Simulated assay, not measured.
Amino acid sequence: MDQALNILVARLLAQRFVLRKDPLARRALIDEAFRESLEHRLAECGLQLLENPYAEHIAVALQPHMEEWVFGEGENWLSNNMGLPRDGIALLVVVWALIILPKRERQIARVEAGNEEQGDLFGAEKPIEHGEGVAQGVSEDALYADFGKVLGGKMRFTTNLGQLSKLGFVVRRNRMIYEGPMLDLMIDYAKLAPRIINGALADILKLSGTQIATAEIDA
Rank of each mutant, 00 (worst) to 15 (best):
N6S: 10
R11N: 09
L12F: 15
L13K: 15
L13D: 07
A14L: 12
R16F: 08
F17W: 14
R20L: 10
P23W: 03
A25I: 02
A28Y: 02
I30A: 10
E36R: 12
E39Q: 14
E39A: 07
E39N: 09
H40L: 08
E44H: 09
E44S: 11
G46Q: 07
Q48D: 13
Q48L: 14
P53D: 13
Y54I: 01
Y54V: 04
A55K: 04
E56W: 02
H57E: 05
A59W: 10
A59T: 08
A59P: 11
Q63L: 15
H65R: 15
E67D: 06
L78Q: 11
L78W: 03
S79V: 11
M82H: 12
G83M: 03
P85K: 03
D87L: 00
I89H: 01
I89P: 01
L91T: 03
V93F: 15
V95G: 00
A97H: 14
I99Q: 04
R104M: 11
R104T: 04
R104E: 08
Q107N: 08
Q107V: 07
R110H: 12
E112S: 07
N115P: 01
E116L: 13
Q118G: 00
L121C: 04
G123H: 14
K126E: 13
P127R: 07
G131K: 05
V134W: 05
A135C: 15
S139F: 07
A142D: 15
Y144F: 15
V150L: 14
R156V: 15
G162E: 09
Q163I: 13
V170K: 07
R173P: 00
N174Y: 15
I177E: 01
E179P: 02
D184I: 00
M186T: 00
I197H: 05
I197G: 01
G199E: 07
D203A: 13
S208R: 12
E216Q: 14
E216C: 04
I217C: 07
